[in-house]
Design a protein around this nucleic acid. Structure first.
Lengths: 95, 95
DNA sequence: GCAATATTTAGATACTTGTCTAAATATCTG
DNA sequence: CAGATATTTAGACAAGTATCTAAATATTGC
């Protein structure tokens, strides 16, 4: 997991909203974009950032490009955060 | 949890390193800064961002200002991420 | 109160980034 | 192939941010 890329990707609210939309299943760029008041070009930029962080995967289906969530990276990120705080039994320093 | 502030705070590598240093226990600004090749002013800016996100707490101890980790926010963030991905038994859509 | 130490604030600068418009690329259909 | 639709790329611009130096504020100890 490219930590820096992932955190940077997650830092933008539009991108988090995109990921949220993808929880319901894979969607084409256009289907995702329908929910946002933003040009397709801007959305495409956000897709690119999410792809760099490996948070989404793409697959062409005819004229559409379909995006899907790569939950592995989200999972890794969550684990990393859990490991980051103390007070966890057996991990962080307690005193 | 102010999600946006937290994600923004986590997006900078210096700030993540600061949080990491604090896992070992509370430290003064100067003690934290000793590990970074950066002016105290720059560090102070990062502290400010971390405070805004409520990721750290401060307490004055004489001439020092002591920073400590607020693990609650990290925990909340981790939970939020876990909730964000599907495939979790009982939460995300599976198909 | 003064000098020394610790930290923050103010102001400046360079870099990054989110957004836009316009143009390019890819696919489908007649 | 030509036109329509879907998406990305290129280039520009405004806003945000990480960093610095210099100065301000707070505390301690003489």
């Amino acid at each position: 997991m490219k930590q820096q890329a992932v955190f940077k990707a997650m830092a933008d609210p539009t991108r988090r909203a995109i990921l949220k939309r993808l929880q319901g299943g894979a969607l084409s760029a256009g289907e995702i974009g329908a929910a946002f008041d933003m040009t397709a070009a801007s959305l495409s930029h956000h897709f690119s950032v999410l792809k760099q962080a490996d948070l989404v995967r793409t697959e062409r289906q005819g004229q559409f490009i379909v995006y899907s969530l790569n939950s592995t990276v989200l999972e890794d990120l969550a684990r990393m955060l859990f490991d980051m705080f103390p007070g966890k039994p057996g991990a962080g320093p307690k005193a």
